[in-house]
């Protein structure tokens, strides 16, 4: 069983959103994903990291940690912050619900992560932080003849 891992930690600045999703997509490239699968991964990472910046740290400074693992044909992504945490997780995960309508948030973040990945797990502790864990299976492509 082959396992490959990658860990990165960066500042909670919005300019790092594109950096984070591109880095994870580049790591995932060794599973030979389709264009659509790459977009799925990028979108899910973008949502998770944006949540850390806007909600976890409420636009103040902090560090975001992203851990990725490839095991066989599956990609595991963990996105963590040590921010304010989520008090009502069930409410937060409801599609279209947002705690920050004034910032023009659509409330679709978790719904997109769920739609684009095979599995989503969120654990959070108020005043301690939030951990988002995602898994996606990358289908094997038929061998080129």
């Amino acid at each position: 069983m082959e396992i490959q891992e990658m860990v990165m930690e960066f500042d909670s600045s919005s300019s790092n959103e594109s950096f984070a999703r591109v880095a994870v997509a580049a790591f995932a490239a060794r599973l030979d994903p389709t264009m659509e699968e790459i977009t799925d991964i990028k979108t899910a990472v973008s949502e998770a990291v944006t949540n850390c910046i806007i909600h976890g740290y409420e636009s103040t400074e902090g560090k975001i940690r992203v851990e990725c693992k490839i095991q066989n044909d599956e990609l595991f992504i963990t996105v963590m912050d040590r921010g304010c945490g989520i008090t009502d997780l069930e409410k937060a995960m409801e599609p279209l619900y947002t705690s920050k309508p004034e910032l023009e948030r659509s409330g679709m973040g978790f719904a997109f992560m769920e739609a684009f990945m095979d599995e989503l797990k969120v654990s959070s502790m108020p005043m301690a932080g939030t951990i988002v864990q995602m898994r996606k299976k990358i289908a094997k492509k038929p061998e080129m003849v």
Binding site: T39, K42, T43, S46, E47, T50, T98, L103, E104, R105, S106, G107, M108, G109, A111, F112
Partner: peptide, 13 residues
């Protein structure tokens, strides 16, 4: 080539 839920929120606004 890329848009996430932030783009959705901006269009809704």
């Amino acid at each position: 080539t890329f848009m996430d839920s932030s783009g959705v929120g901006m269009i809704m606004g």
